[in-house]
Write a protein that binds this DNA or RNA. Sequence first.
DNA 1: GTCTATAATGAGATAGAC
DNA 2: GTCTATCTCATTATAGAC
Lengths: 222, 222
Amino acid sequence: MTDVSAPRKRAPSKKSLETKARILDAAEDLFSKRGFDGTSIRDIAKQAGAQVALVHHHGGPKEELFHMVVARRAKPLAELRLKALEEKKSAADRDGRNKLTLREILASFVQPFLEMTLSDGAPWPAYGRLIALVSADERWRQIAAECFDPTAAVFVDEIADLLPGASRTALSAAFVFTVSGMLALTASSWRIGAVAREQQQADLAETLLDYSEAGFLRLCEG
Amino acid sequence: MTDVSAPRKRAPSKKSLETKARILDAAEDLFSKRGFDGTSIRDIAKQAGAQVALVHHHGGPKEELFHMVVARRAKPLAELRLKALEEKKSAADRDGRNKLTLREILASFVQPFLEMTLSDGAPWPAYGRLIALVSADERWRQIAAECFDPTAAVFVDEIADLLPGASRTALSAAFVFTVSGMLALTASSWRIGAVAREQQQADLAETLLDYSEAGFLRLCEG
DNA sequence: GTCTATAATGAGATAGAC
DNA sequence: GTCTATCTCATTATAGAC
């Protein structure tokens, strides 16, 4: 999944993998902070402690490096989301319910993302902003389609199954609004802080779920 | 409002103003499509049909040009929003109501924006994407604080007056979520279209208001 | 106010030694 | 796999003629 170019002939050495990881980490951090065009290969090399030519060696052209950085965590993220969904289904079965609640579905999608990007000691602190960039720029449409649309489709189908009376259009709009709110928590939380700064991050996740669930139900029932 | 630099000694000629407007129009269009770092002064000059040096003459350094482009329409937009609010208050008075509904307040904020940026023949078709860029990048925090925060504060106060039981934190979060949805309509409408493309723009405005109103009420009442 | 010309810098990418 | 060195091109910005 991290290799989107031609297949290699040899397995890379351990040191090579470490160097590549350092380069991808630096690229992820800088891309997320300054955007694609605001980040130079030279900046990435400097932060990774490597030479410029080495960044090209591991990352290829700049666009491919960006693609690699986004794709690297897409599969683990998708698995976390689907795992959360399956676990909630098992729990519902044990409770004798045959359907998940809307909130359980939404939480399965939102919480793994916020946990990896926004919680205390989050392992992927820059990845949330990066995804917000990808989602907002039509230039990365292909990357979004490859990395995120399949999982999104699973969740939209799940919701459509729960709310059979809702139009596909209403479902789509509500889902995009929910994702927009989720991304705002990571990419534009400074805008929230500009108005009121008395809240924890964990609370904001619940706040988002409250808001989205109610909005969803209004669109799909009204 | 369009002049954020030192005061001029002379009134500019008519031709100069036209040239400046052409440059700002080109800058607005290109900044909105490719972002700040993805747009060069040369691109702007070419699209405006002017020389590179002339862009610098009218726009100053690149950051100042960006500031100018955003600030140019901020005051008219704020006036449209406040005018919509006042008109709805007058109408409510005539109906013998002494309070606006939440939906009327939200619509006064959202609809002027969508009308200017997203309607058929919208006069500012690029400005919506530009504001989305400003809102998502902490680098433009000062511009956002100057151009948009004052009006936002008026509307948040208005809502706080309507829903006195709600915490300031819940209000702030809900407002940011609502603005995120509004910006998604202009900046990420391709994401909506990727799921279902059977809807008109006018409908999406109503859809957003339905969703936001319900989410707001849940946060403020629950 | 508008133009030509140019300065000064930084960018992405590659060749080739080790 | 990693490094040095370099190619080629685009960038912001300004100086100075008209």
